[in-house]
Design a binder for these strands. Structure first.
Lengths: 206, 206
DNA sequence: ACATGCGCTGACCGACCGTTCAGTGCAAGC
DNA sequence: GCTTGCACTGAACGGTCGGTCAGCGCATGT
């Protein structure tokens, strides 16, 4: 059942689902900026303009908020990129789309992305991180598959596939450490420029 | 005045300077593993087998320990790489040495490196971070200069120099997220393999 | 023999952490 | 009009945090 329309007219207080999204949004920004341990439940509640207790009404604990942010981001990144891969394009073109689509995802969901990629990988709380790693592995598996196909098609040289995938992923994953949204190229453009450099190399043709 | 020789015979307790090095070493490992906020003074003291109070005998506070670890690492990285650049080699060869030397530094001072590169860049405590950023900027300025020289010498194509530098640095800086010291190639080899890929590109020659 | 200096400790501090809980106010359903 | 249910709050909990402090043991210089 949908909420009655009168609820929507209410100017100040939001619906429960909206509230959860607001919390996740603010939490993503704070986790990305200050890290997991550097972000307190009080920080999140104050950023949302609510009491600390309300966080526990919507989520069981801090870990769940963090898991929702990072798992959601990692899972959606995979589908976001996968869904944009053109089925009938040349393999190397699909690699390029992989990179630019990742740049686009970064542009749209910057805070959740940063929170996910900077999350410590060896967190003792492994149960919740397990699923995130699963999607991350699928994402990395995807780029490896694309590289292999490009090699088989003769477009790429014979390459160390895992290492090549890591080179591509490194360029994308490190972007958040220097990228400033207000200046310079947009992330998809940056990814495209990286793509040109990596595909063709730095060395001048002789 | 040097310590008298009798002091050295003491089997259990170390000299003050040794203690400081031990503390910095253990702190680097913990900061790298669990982050700044995830590492308590108690963690550091227990890792060293000493009391928490002793940390404050050698350092003023937690921030100073962290600053010593990260600033020391960043400053030494610059000199470590700079000192290894061959003066009379071709520009592109100097770029390669920049990368492999960075890989060698990573291999030797892994924990301090990780603590430095994962340190939050927008820490409110800016006074101490200022000097670290200075060395980091010099380090990045160095690779940009090398790239420019390679372009001027006609070895590299005309390139977006800052972006090219970031591509190279990204590949090196992201290594700690997937590198496992006990298996696979050593970091200098990895840097060299990256170098081959970035120089010559992925695309097969036609 | 005595004073000095230093590496070092255990007890302790206030602040803040994540988390809990009893209870409030208000809209919806009967 | 009354009950139900839920978004929401303020006070409080035990625990851990970074940091302090008085003082101990012992090698050293005189």
């Amino acid at each position: 059942m949908a909420r009655p329309a009168t609820r929507i007219a209410s100017p100040e207080s939001g619906d429960g689902a909206e509230r959860m999204l607001q919390i996740l949004s603010e939490a993503a920004r704070l986790f990305a900026t200050n890290g997991y341990d550097g972000t307190s439940m009080r920080d999140i509640s104050e950023a949302c303009g609510i009491s600390k207790s309300l966080l526990y009404h919507h989520f069981t604990d801090k870990d769940e908020i963090f898991a929702k942010v990072t798992l959601g981001s990692t899972r959606e990144l995979y589908h976001f990129v996968f869904d944009r891969l053109p089925a009938d394009a040349r393999p190397s073109e699909r690699v390029r789309v992989f990179m630019t689509a990742t740049g686009e995802y970064f542009q749209r969901y910057r805070w959740a992305w940063i929170a996910s990629t900077t999350a410590f990988w060896n967190d003792p709380e492994q149960r919740r991180q397990k699923e995130r790693m699963m999607w991350r592995d699928r994402y990395e598996g995807l780029i490896r598959t694309l590289i292999e196909e490009a090699i088989e098609a003769g477009e790429f040289r014979p390459l160390d596939v895992p290492l090549t995938g890591r080179l591509i992923l490194s360029s994308l994953n490190w972007m958040h450490r220097w990228y400033k949204p207000e200046k310079g190229m947009a992330p998809p453009q940056i990814a495209d420029a990286y793509c040109d450099m990596i595909f063709n190399g730095l060395v001048a043709p002789r």
